[in-house]
Amino acid sequence: MKKLLILIFLFFLAAAGAGFCQTDTYHIGSRDVLSVAIYAGGVEQETVVVNVSEHGKINVPFIGSVTARGLTLAELETAIQGPLERDFFVDPQVNVQVKEYHSIRFFISGAVKKPGQYEMTSATNFLELVARAEGLLPDRGSIAYVLREIHGISTEEDVKKAIQTNATIKVDLTRLLDEGDMSHNITLIPGDIVYIPRADKLNQSVYKIYVEGEVKKPGVYDYQPGMTAMAACVLAGGFDKYAAITRVKIVRNENGKQEVIKVNLEKVQDGRTPDILIKPGDHIHVPETWL
C-alpha cells in the first residue's frame, strides 16, 4: 500500500509539471515555432510567427536571416536587437516566445511498455518520459541509464552498445520509485537517451561483472560504463595479501567465443601501462602468487 501511494504521488507530481518549461535555460532547436515581436518608440513595429529551419535559421523583419538554433530566448532577443539598433531604430525592444516546441525529442527503451522516440512540447523529467512510454514493466531493474549527446541511436541494441563505451547518468529506480526520493527524478535535456534494463536473471550478464580469486570480497557486481579492471578489483575490496596482481586475467565471452585478456595491474598502479576497460559479463580473475 505504501508503494502504491508513493507511485500515485509521483504520477500526479509528474503530471503537474508537464506543461512547465524553463524558458530561461531552454535552447531553441530546429522546427521550433517562435513568435518575434519588435517594439520601438513605445509602438509595436512588427510581430511575426517564424519556423526555425533545419539549418537553425529564422527570417526576422528588417534584418533577414538570423541563427536561432542553440540560443536561449534571451540570447536570440539580443542577437536581433543589435542589428535593429544599429541600422533601424533607437532603443528597440525584442520579445521572443516559443509557440510550439518541436526539437524536444527523447528516446527510451528497455523495460517500458512503449519504447521508442518521443517528441515533447516542453522541458521534461525522467518520470514524465516514463509516463509517455506508458510506464515501467514489472521486471524492470533497479538502475536506469541516461546517455547524453550521443547520436546515431535507433534501436535498443544500439543503446546497449553505447552504454558500454560512453559515460552515462544513472537513475536509482529503487530510491525514486520505492522510496519517493525526487532528487533522482532528473531533468532531461533534448536528445537524451534513456535505457531501463530488465532485471531478468537470464540476462544478468548484461548488467554484471564477476570478480574472483585473491580479492577481499569476491562476487558479482553491477557493471558501470567506463569501469576498468583496476576499478573492478577496488570495488571487490582490493587485493588479498597473496594476490598476484601481475597475472590478472579477464575472461570475456562474445558471440559464442571466449577471449582471455591478460593484464599486469602492478604496472597499471605504477602508471607504466594503461588500465583496461571491461565489458558487462566479464570475469576478472586475480590468481594467488606462486611464492
Rank of each mutant, 00 (worst) to 15 (best):
L84T: 14
N59C: 03
A111F: 04
E77Q: 15
I278T: 05
A14S: 12
G41W: 00
E266L: 15
D181W: 01
I196M: 04
E54G: 11
D87Q: 14
G238E: 11
Q97K: 15
P61C: 07
L136I: 15
Y145P: 06
G219E: 08
A111H: 06
F20Y: 06
I104V: 14
R140E: 08
G152P: 09
T67A: 10
G141M: 02
P138C: 09
C21D: 12
D24A: 04
G256E: 06
E134N: 14
R140M: 10
T67N: 09
H283G: 05
C21H: 07
V286C: 08
T168R: 02
N125C: 02
K161R: 15
A123G: 14
S154P: 04
A40V: 14
L137D: 05
D178G: 12
S109N: 12
T155H: 08
M1A: 15
S154V: 05
I143R: 13
R86N: 10
I209G: 05
G64Q: 07
E119A: 08
T174L: 13
L265E: 01
L188M: 05
L235S: 10
V96H: 06
A229C: 11
I169P: 00
Y242F: 14
T174V: 13
A244G: 13
K99N: 09
A16P: 03
E75H: 02
A37I: 10
Q258M: 06
Q269E: 13
G237S: 09
V130S: 10
K113F: 12
A14G: 11
C233H: 03
V36N: 02
I196D: 01
H151D: 05
G281C: 02
V263Y: 01
T23Y: 00
K241P: 05
I153P: 05
T289Y: 08
G180H: 11
C21P: 00
L13N: 12
E75L: 04
I209Y: 01
L5D: 08
V112D: 07
K113H: 14
N264H: 08
V90H: 10
D24M: 01
G70T: 03
V211W: 01
F107A: 04
P190K: 03
A18H: 12
N203S: 13
G281F: 01
T273D: 10
D87G: 09
V50Q: 03
Q45D: 05
V94Y: 03
G70V: 03
A79G: 05
D282R: 06
C21E: 08
N185L: 02
R247I: 00
R198E: 08
R132F: 01
E54N: 12
Y39M: 12
A40S: 15
H27W: 00
L177K: 12
D282Y: 01
R148C: 09
C233G: 08
E134W: 07
G19M: 03
G41I: 00
I250K: 10
G135C: 05
A15D: 13
D222E: 10
G135F: 01
Q45G: 06
F9A: 14
H27P: 01
T25M: 00
Y223E: 07
E214S: 11
E119R: 12
T155I: 09
G135T: 09
